[in-house]
Amino acid sequence: MSYGDKLKEIHKIYEEAGVTPSAKYSPDELLAIKDKIELMLESLRAKITVAIDAGEVPTIRMNDSNEMSWMLAADQSKGLYATLWAEEKEWFQSEGLDVALSTKHDVGGMKEWLVVKVTPADPVPVPRM
């Protein structure tokens, strides 16, 4: 593989992450972050589908501050690998589900968490002619 091809692969890593090559992350760091995000999203999907299969209404509580920050930023199409959340939301929509994020906190305001709530998608109204 030529150095030009290697450099193209490096640029692709930065592009997928949504940052410029001059960013503070090395390609290896970005790939590690991507792996962690993908694992988190796989776990989230599994928790939701298992709950639905068990006849339960899925409401997932996330306590990890890094995951919370990433989810909230990605939900606004910001942050590293925000496209991964967009793809995940598309999958939920293809399954007839809507996903909503909301932050909650205890009465004293000392602890905060993110709630991922899943509901049936509203059917798209068909215009009458």
Rank of each mutant, 00 (worst) to 15 (best):
A46I: 04
A17P: 09
W85Y: 15
S102N: 11
K111V: 05
K117E: 15
S26C: 07
S22T: 05
A23Y: 09
M40F: 15
I33F: 08
D64Y: 13
K8A: 14
T49R: 15
G4I: 05
E15K: 15
E88R: 07
I10N: 06
M40V: 12
V99D: 06
D122W: 02
R128H: 10
I37M: 07
R61M: 10
I13R: 11
T119N: 15
A121Q: 13
L39F: 07
S94H: 11
I48V: 15
W91H: 12
A121L: 14
L41N: 03
Y25N: 03
E9M: 06
P120F: 10
K36M: 08
I52L: 15
V116T: 07
Y14E: 00
S26Y: 00
G79H: 01
D5K: 13
I52T: 03
M110V: 09
V99L: 14
E112N: 12
S65E: 12
L97R: 14
E56L: 09
A82T: 00
V57I: 14
N66E: 12
K34W: 07
M68A: 01
K78F: 09
W91A: 11
P27C: 03
E29I: 03
E88P: 05
F92T: 10
T20K: 03
P27Q: 03
K6Q: 07
D75F: 06
G109W: 04
R128S: 13
E42N: 13
V126I: 10
P125S: 02
T20V: 01
A100T: 14
I13P: 09
S94Q: 08
K12H: 14
V118F: 08
T83R: 13
D5N: 03
K8H: 10
I13Q: 05
L44M: 12
D122Q: 15
L114K: 12
V50A: 09
R61G: 01
L101D: 11
L7E: 10
K117Q: 14
L97Y: 14
G79V: 01
V116H: 11
W70G: 02
Y81A: 04
P21K: 04
L101M: 09
I37S: 06
L41E: 12
A86F: 12
V124A: 01
Y25T: 04
T59Q: 13
I52N: 09
K8T: 14
G55Y: 00
K6D: 03
M1I: 03
A51M: 07
V115M: 15
V115E: 15
E88A: 14
Y25K: 00
F92Y: 15
L84C: 06
E42A: 12
S26H: 05
V57G: 11
Q93H: 12
E29P: 05
W113P: 08
E29T: 11
L7A: 10
L84D: 09
W85C: 07
Q76G: 01
I48H: 10
A86D: 11
D64L: 03
M68I: 15
D35V: 04
Y81N: 02
Q93E: 10
Q93L: 03
W85T: 04
K24A: 14
Y25L: 00
T49G: 04
K8L: 11
T83V: 10
I10D: 03
G79E: 02
S94V: 02
Y14C: 00
W70Y: 02
P125W: 00
I37P: 10
E87F: 08
G4A: 08
N63M: 06
W85E: 06
A54Y: 01
H11I: 02
M71Q: 00
V99P: 06
N63A: 05
T59Y: 05
K8Y: 04
F92Q: 06
E16P: 02
M1H: 12
D5S: 13
